[in-house]
Design a protein around this nucleic acid. Structure first.
Lengths: 218, 218
DNA sequence: GTCTATACTTGGATAGAC
DNA sequence: GTCTATCCAAGTATAGAC
């Protein structure tokens, strides 16, 4: 957002600064989304933000730092959305539905691609991998919480701990995102969510899992 | 295989050419493995191969073409390995063991990373995505064949078609590869294979899956 | 077939004017 | 805080000498 004629008022200086920062973060998300890690250069991002290339380095020091800020921004956004959705569907069946809906949302909005591109691109910049890994941990923790909050502890003990399941869920999410983007077809991935839903219902009928819509047994 | 410079002399002379080609393909694999898509430039690959940068363009036209040749090379290699392993363990339980063993092999050898980097990097080069997608299809087809060859058709009909399961397996494989490389810890991924093995055994005991079909080797 | 040299482009990062 | 100008490194690709 170029503001050629806007003078910086005394005291409102941090407003303009914050505005530019946010514009850059938003632009970084957009570029990662559409062009991937490779396209996410300071010049392209600044173009997208409508500001100068040097501002990337002024505000973030390096391009990698800006990309991490972008990841944090989408993560915060999605975390709110996920939390609200999970809170309203604390049963295994409900969770499966929520997972499917959110997966499709992320596919549309491109939020998942930002994550995948940053993970794969981590090899490019020394130190980036560790930063990204720390942020992924937030998601596995979240998934773990959702699982242990909705699945009977006895069942978990009999099959697999929530930690392991959460790790698998996150991996599956990333893999499906990659494949869906690659062949531009989300139907196959969504079909899998449908199957999962079906199997959860089957398990419910067999008495292994709590019945659909049932309250949290605990 | 449209080569830019087809040797003008019939007969010999293609030995040296073929040697260089193979050196470049091997070097491309190595660079993708260790440095990712970002590092896979003509210069770095040629350095690794011990030859001149211009040869990349002489033999392959573009860097992207060389990377695809590298993907084909590792795919051919792994396809042989997978086929042999699957042939010796056609039961669901055996398949799970084979999958775990091969996943670890791929993690060590870096073959899986070559695939992941190319998928994620596809956004960088127009047209690359379609080429990579076509090659992934070979793997989903392979997985589908292995599944329908070892799981009871009746059970498949009751749960999910082999095509869908195969898609999910490939997605999971890619996701686990990404996460394992990211935090440099393969234990979590391998633990999941252990759980899968356990669940297959449980299903066998419940009579849902064949109890190690008559295949048991030796 | 292979190498050297080179043209052209893009990207990261800094300095200094406004 | 923001912009222009600039430096330097790295990349793709081609031409032409050996």
């Amino acid at each position: 957002m170029a503001r050629p004629g806007v003078p910086s008022k005394p005291g409102a200086a941090s407003d303009a600064s914050e505005g530019t920062r946010q514009a850059l973060v938003g632009a970084a998300i957009e570029v990662l989304r559409t062009g991937g890690f490779h396209a996410a250069s300071a010049r392209r991002i600044a173009d997208q933000a409508g500001c100068n290339q040097g501002l990337v380095f002024y505000h973030f020091g390096t391009v990698a730092n800006l990309l991490l800020a972008a990841l944090d921004a989408v993560s915060a956004d999605r975390f709110e959305r996920y939390s609200a959705a999970v809170a309203q569907a604390p049963s295994p069946a409900g969770l499966t539905d929520v997972a499917a809906a959110i997966f499709e949302e992320d596919l549309d909005s491109g939020h998942a691609k930002v994550l995948v591109e940053l993970i794969a691109g981590s090899s490019a910049v020394p130190g980036l991998g560790a930063e990204v890994a720390a942020r992924i941990e937030g998601w596995t923790d979240f998934a773990e919480g959702a699982i242990s909050g909705s699945v009977d502890p006895v069942l978990l003990a009999a099959t697999a701990p929530a930690t392991e399941i959460a790790y698998g869920i996150v991996a599956m999410y990333l893999g499906l995102e990659m494949l869906s983007h690659l062949d531009g077809d989300r139907a196959k991935a969504l079909a899998l969510f449908g199957r999962a839903r079906q199997l959860v219902a089957l398990a419910g009928a067999m008495g292994i899992l709590p019945d659909v819509k049932g309250d949290d047994p605990r």
